[in-house]
Computed example of a mutant assay.
Amino acid sequence: MRVQTEEWQSFVPGVRMYKGKMTLFWNGEELYDYENGDWLVYSEEERETWQVVIFLPGVEVIPDRTFWKCDNLETVIMSDTVERIEKSAFKGCKSLTFVQLSRNLEYIAEMVFYRCVSLTSMFIPPSCREIREKAFFCCEKLIIFSVPQHTEIGRNVFVRTALLEASPFFSGMYENYEEVNDWVKNGLLQGDEYALHRACSSFHPLDEVIFEIVRRQGLQAFKKPDSIGITPVEYLEHNPFADVD
């Protein structure tokens, strides 16, 4: 589910059925009392009905554990006002498969997506300065991860992910996290043979760039897998920032 920004102005806070999914339109109200461990506003049973969360304009920070253990949450769409995601905000959201981050996101705290076991892809915007340790720990199906070279990545971010298992550093026992982080940012899609993969996984894929690469490499380049088995078509299909025909 993708939401056009022009739709957002008509949204009001609350939970209701939207496009066939039980959806929370969130305005930043406090949902979880971290100190006392209490759910606020909505009960645990109500939280389990949520399938989609759409962030309304004006939300800047997602506090600690706000959506922790929303077991049936599948889709998260953030407004571009969000700048920070705090610790364990989506920890244990085992059904989460699609996340559209804010284009102005600056910071992802530790264990934000810890054990989001159904999450397969993540596209980090250029605004993001830092991803803290274990942010994607135990995201077992996470294989597509697009991140700017300047983003600082902490320790053990990719432990127990499909991406790490597909890397040249995976031993099953110990991995040098600095080598892994550098490979994800600088080595995974390097070289002209992966130019189309880079274009399709970028923050803002451009038709003219993609067409020029295809002109040089031919249409078959769309189906060529990279070193971890992902094709340019798959990058485009997963990329929430792509608007390419």
Rank of each mutant, 00 (worst) to 15 (best):
Trp50Arg: 02
Tyr32Lys: 06
Tyr18Ala: 06
Lys19Asp: 05
Arg47Phe: 10
Tyr32Asp: 06
Lys19Cys: 00
Gly37Met: 03
Trp39Ser: 10
Arg65Cys: 14
Trp39Gly: 04
Glu46Val: 09
Asp64Arg: 12
Val52Asn: 07
Phe55Tyr: 10
Arg65Phe: 13
Trp68Cys: 09
Thr23Pro: 09
Leu56Asn: 12
Glu45Ala: 15
Arg16Ser: 06
Val61Phe: 02
Lys21Gly: 06
Leu24Gly: 03
Leu31Met: 04
Asp38Phe: 11
Phe25Ala: 06
Val53Ala: 02
Trp26Arg: 03
Tyr42Cys: 10
Val53Lys: 04
Arg47Met: 11
Ile54Ser: 09
Thr23Val: 02
Glu35Phe: 07
Glu35Ala: 12
Gly28Met: 08
Arg47Tyr: 11
Lys21Ala: 14
Glu45Pro: 01
Glu60Arg: 11
Glu30Ser: 06
Arg47Lys: 15
Met17Trp: 14
Tyr42Pro: 05
Leu56Gln: 04
Gly58Arg: 10
Arg47Thr: 09
Leu56His: 02
Trp26Glu: 01
Tyr32Leu: 08
Trp50His: 08
Val61Ser: 01
Ile62Asp: 00
Lys19Asn: 13
Glu44Gly: 15
Thr23His: 08
Val15Tyr: 05
Asp38Gly: 00
Thr49Phe: 02
Asp33Phe: 08
Val41Thr: 14
Arg47Cys: 14
Ile62Tyr: 00
Lys69Pro: 05
Arg47Ala: 14
Asp64Val: 14
Val52Phe: 00
Glu48Asp: 14
